[in-house]
Design a protein around this nucleic acid. Sequence first.
DNA 1: TTTAGTGTCATAATACACTATGACACTATT
DNA 2: AATAGTGTCATAGTGTATTATGACACTAAA
Lengths: 128, 128
Amino acid sequence: MDFSEHKNIFLQIRDWMVDQILTGKLQPGDKIPSVRELAADIEVNRNTVMRSYALLEEEGILENKRGIGFFVSLGAKSTLLNIQRKEFFLEVLPPIIHQIQVLNLNSGDLESLLTVIHSNDNKYEKEQ
Amino acid sequence: MDFSEHKNIFLQIRDWMVDQILTGKLQPGDKIPSVRELAADIEVNRNTVMRSYALLEEEGILENKRGIGFFVSLGAKSTLLNIQRKEFFLEVLPPIIHQIQVLNLNSGDLESLLTVIHSNDNKYEKEQ
DNA sequence: TTTAGTGTCATAATACACTATGACACTATT
DNA sequence: AATAGTGTCATAGTGTATTATGACACTAAA
């Protein structure tokens, strides 16, 4: 994991974990790397990882078994879809739309974006 | 101007100034608010505004006349289009596309986005 | 019971964004 | 010449993210 200059590390760790779950690389019920292990892996302090995990636990994404470790909660996927969709529509999309207007980007410029959107139109299971 | 939690203030000021220029609210050649004036307006320290202005000057967006103030440079608009478009395609768009895939958002969900894109298809002056 | 692995808490140190403030050089105006 | 408005620089203080490290309670397995 490589960190961005301008966003807090503990939030980037949280986002990375969220992505792992939403893409299915981590399944509900799975044990996730221990605080110390992940910290060593990504060369970050234990306390920083702990802060990310605590945040995810507060959000209902992770569960904690004392002395054992953190696990992906059973409802994590649907909870995350709600949280992330809400954030996307409220926080992410509006400035993006504004940027597209201001930079005057058209269908040709955003071909890759349109392709992805239309491929989602053809998926059967909208929710799981 | 209201500031986001998780991004440096001096960068948000820079982004706001960029937006003012790209939307035409500030024109090339215009004098922009003095360091002290803007700082007072948005209730931020002089040094923070100074840092934003210095960054914009370094990027070729602003020019400085000693003892007088900062002005929007003549080439600011095309310079900004280059900078912001490059950043959009390299830094902004890829994670957005990834989010749309992961959250399985389709044309219906992103109607407002598609509307803007297609309205840009019908504009005559692609560059100015 | 011992050992190793978990999370958790506390403390101190470092880095940096931001603030607060004063001082100075330059420019335009009076 | 005096004044007010510009940017600029320096200094010190504050808040907070991050690091570094040690200690402790809990759990599982040897």
